[in-house]
C-alpha cells in the first residue's frame, strides 16, 4: 500500500507540474524537503535522548510497571496481543498522555518505545505491522490533544480575543475521529487478522 501511495505522490506531481508549469517549484521542493527531513531527525536527537533517559529512570524505579498495572484493563481491550502487565502498556499510556497534553516532542520517543515493544510481540514477519501496531497508530494519527496549541497561537496572532471558543468543538471533533478510527481499524482486523509468519 505504501508503495502505491508513494508512487502516486511522485508521478502525479511530476505530471501535473509539467502541465501547469510548476516543475521548477517541484524541483526546489525535492531538494529542500530532503534536507529538512534530515534537519528534523537531527533536531530530534537531543529530545529523544532526554526522554529516553528519563524513561530508563522510570523503568528502573518501577514507575512504568505501576502505570501499566493501573491501565491494564483498558489497554487489554484495545491491544489484545499485549500480555497483562507488559511494560509496553506503560509506553503506550505515556505516549497517549504526552500527545493529549500537547507535548509533541515528548510523545514521539514514548511512541517509538511503544512501537519497539509491539515489535517484540509481533506475531508476523518483522516487516509486517501487527494488529496492535495498526490500532496504536490509528490512535496516534487521530491526534487527541486537549489544547490545540498551534491553532490557538495563530488565532491569537491575528488578534482573536477569545481563541478558547475553539476548545470544545475541537475536542468533540478529535474524539469522534478517534472513536470512528478505532472502530474502523478493529473491523478491518476482524476481517483480516495478523497473517502470521508465512507468506
Amino acid at each position: 500500500m505504501m508503495n502505491w501511495i508513494w508512487l502516486f505522490f511522485i508521478l502525479s506531481s511530476v505530471i501535473i507540474s509539467i502541465f501547469n508549469g510548476k516543475i521548477g517549484d517541484v524541483s526546489n521542493a525535492i531538494l529542500s524537503s530532503a534536507q529538512s527531513a534530515v534537519t528534523i531527525c537531527i533536531g530530534l536527537v537531543g529530545i529523544m535522548a532526554l526522554w529516553l533517559g528519563l524513561m530508563r529512570i522510570a523503568q528502573q524505579s518501577g514507575m512504568i510497571d505501576c502505570i501499566a498495572h493501573f491501565l491494564s484493563p483498558l489497554l487489554k481491550r484495545l491491544f489484545p496481543g499485549v500480555p497483562k502487565n507488559d511494560p509496553v502498556q506503560a509506553d503506550i499510556a505515556l505516549n497517549i498522555s504526552a500527545n493529549a497534553l500537547g507535548l509533541g516532542n515528548a510523545a514521539t520517543p514514548f511512541g517509538i518505545k511503544a512501537m519497539e515493544g509491539l515489535k517484540r510481540l509481533n506475531p508476523n514477519k518483522p516487516d509486517t505491522a501487527s494488529d496492535d501496531m495498526c490500532t496504536f497508530l490509528t490512535i496516534n494519527t487521530a491526534g487527541v490533544q486537549l489544547i490545540p496549541v498551534s491553532a490557538i497561537a495563530i488565532l491569537m496572532a491575528v488578534g482573536s480575543e477569545n481563541p478558547g471558543e475553539i476548545l470544545l468543538p475541537t475536542l468533540i471533533t478529535t474524539f469522534s475521529a478517534l472513536c470512528i478510527g478505532v472502530i474502523f481499524v478493529k473491523c478491518l482486523i476482524k476481517l483480516s487478522p495478523n497473517p502470521g509468519k508465512k507468506k
Binding site: M2, K119, P126, T128, A129, C134, S192
Partner: peptide, 12 residues
C-alpha cells in the same frame, strides 16, 4: 521499527 507493510494503519 523497520515495518514496511503497514496493513490497516493507512486506511484507518
Amino acid at each position: 521499527v523497520g515495518v514496511k507493510k503497514f496493513r490497516h494503519a493507512v486506511a484507518a
